Measured scan of single mutants.
Amino acid sequence: KAKLLVLLYAFVATDADTICIGYHANNSTDTVDTILEKNVAVTHSVNLLEDSHNGKLCKLKGIAPLQLGKCNITGWLLGNPECDSLLPARSWSYIVETPNSENGACYPGDLIDYEELREQLSSVSSLERFEIFPKESSWPNHTFNGVTVSCSHRGKSSFYRNLLWLTKKGDSYPKLTNSYVNNKGKEVLVLWGVHHPSSSDEQQSLYSNGNAYVSVASSNYNRRFTPEIAARPKVRDQHGRMNYYWTLLEPGDTIIFEATGNLIAPWYAFALSRGFESGIITSNASMHECNTKCQTPQGAINSNLPFQNIHPVTIGECPKYVRSTKLRMVTGLRNIPSIQYRGLFGAIAGFIEGGWTGMIDGWYGYHHQNEQGSGYAADQKSTQNAINGITNKVNSVIEKMNTQFTAVGKEFNNLEKRMENLNKKVDDGFLDIWTYNAELLVLLENERTLDFHDLNVKNLYEKVKSQLKNNAKEIGNGCFEFYHKCDNECMESVRNGTYDYPKYSEESKLNR
């Protein structure tokens, strides 16, 4: 008799109507990190870190770059004969040098303040090359056809396309004075040089004057150069050297050249137009028929994500570079809930034993079982409120962090190594801060989002509990077992918050 009662009780308990509160689960393989956990499985997430590029040089917003090819900045601007293909260059979106560009200054020497000139050019998007001192009329008392084997072109001695090597005419090199007034309405880049012979005999042979000088002056520039005559090792078949100089001439300003020898005179100059998204990159990537809004030396990035880990040097509207390998923000729920887990921000989770793959029309909802059958029903209101809140948060985070910009490298010469090392340390410090901030932001927001979901499920549970009161009992896994019969209409009233407690209280009292 006792065995019969136990079996009867078990049958009745199993047959009781139930309603459970749960949440969506799926077959997603997404994982995120939080402050407290690593690799948390979630139903949905968004990636904030771009880690792919196309490996190509592309047009930037429809404008092609200027590819210097086998030449570098120095060779292009001075007019190395091997860089003749660059003479027609007028406009570009950015400038590309190759790491091993070999054609710079063909006659050995240095372009002074080269690093600063590169910085200036990094904001130039177009130029006009014009004859600042016409070759045939500007130097009537001097020979202007100086050439050298060091600047050979097609097997013949030649010289820079933008400079003139002035030497004596006959047996004399009379003092020369020439000036140019900038009437271009924009900055003009003027380049010139000073020749330093290897011996007094060479000085006399070329310029006749043993104590020659070169003077260059404008409103913002004033220097006097004296040739340094000295024996030097042979470089590119030359014992002599040429140093090259430049200045930016403001609109309306005048530049005056005065010399008694050794002047490498300007022939062509450049009127410059600035462009905020221009820059110089060093890259071996090849040019393709493609378009982008962000270019790196590795390749083009076409992404609206706020961060990238491809390269710190970028041109155009680019994500911020960070050292992170993963920045994924959760938008959905835990896919593998932890039992009795309390989140960092106070939300209680884990009283549900598992997510439901059968509930596909919402994030949170119900599963019921009664004599009429069983089924899932999503709670659309709480789901939609959660979707709206999380979507707004993700968009806000992306908008705040998605300050796209150009980031170019800084140039230092060989004598500025300590400054370069200090600059690298400062840049590394800023990069570490950006990386830390980005990672911390994602970790915190992921923790908040998961706790937010847990709290929403808990609130749904409490909503049902407050309606049923003692007409049902909690069975410990997020479910309630009714003390009365609850048909589909009754189940719907529980879900929509209109459950009639008094209607079922007498039946429940008897069954309790």
Rank of each mutant, 00 (worst) to 15 (best):
Y245F: 07
S152K: 10
E119I: 03
T43N: 11
L191I: 15
L87E: 14
I35W: 04
L111I: 15
I281R: 03
R236G: 06
Y173W: 15
C83M: 08
D113V: 00
V214Q: 09
D201V: 12
V188H: 02
R274C: 06
Y114K: 02
Y213W: 06
I132E: 04
L68H: 05
G185K: 14
S219N: 14
H196R: 02
P134M: 01
G109F: 09
G240I: 04
F276T: 14
L66I: 13
A25L: 01
Q204V: 13
S157K: 14
L121P: 01
T98M: 02
A16K: 11
K135Y: 14
D51R: 01
A64L: 09
S158F: 03
D171S: 13
S179F: 13
A230S: 12
Q120V: 06
L121Q: 06
T247C: 12
T177A: 15
G69E: 12
G75N: 06
T98D: 14
L66E: 05
V190N: 00
N178L: 07
Y245N: 00
S215D: 10
V46C: 05
D237E: 14
R232A: 09
I73M: 13
Y114F: 08
V46N: 01
D110Q: 03
D201S: 11
S52W: 05
L166W: 04
E37G: 10
T74Y: 07
D30M: 00
Q238R: 11
V235K: 13
G275H: 09
L8H: 00
V124G: 04
K1D: 01
P174I: 11
A16W: 11
V235T: 09
N27S: 07
N47K: 11
C20Y: 02
T177N: 06
Q120A: 07
D30F: 06
S45G: 03
L117V: 07
G261A: 11
N182L: 00
R241I: 09
L191P: 04
D84M: 06
D253C: 06
N145W: 06
D51Q: 03
V40D: 05
D171A: 12
R232M: 06
P233K: 13
D253F: 00
P251F: 07
R118K: 13
S93V: 03
I229T: 10
T282Y: 02
D253Q: 15
H44W: 09
S172K: 00
N47W: 11
V188S: 04
G62A: 04
S52M: 09
R232Y: 05
G109L: 00
S205C: 11
V147N: 11
W165R: 13
L249A: 03
E131C: 09
K56I: 02
H24V: 12
D33G: 11
A265E: 02
E115R: 01
Q120M: 05
F130N: 06
G261S: 01
H153S: 13
G155H: 06
R90V: 14
N183D: 14
F159W: 10
R232F: 09
S150R: 04
K168A: 13
N100P: 03
G155W: 09
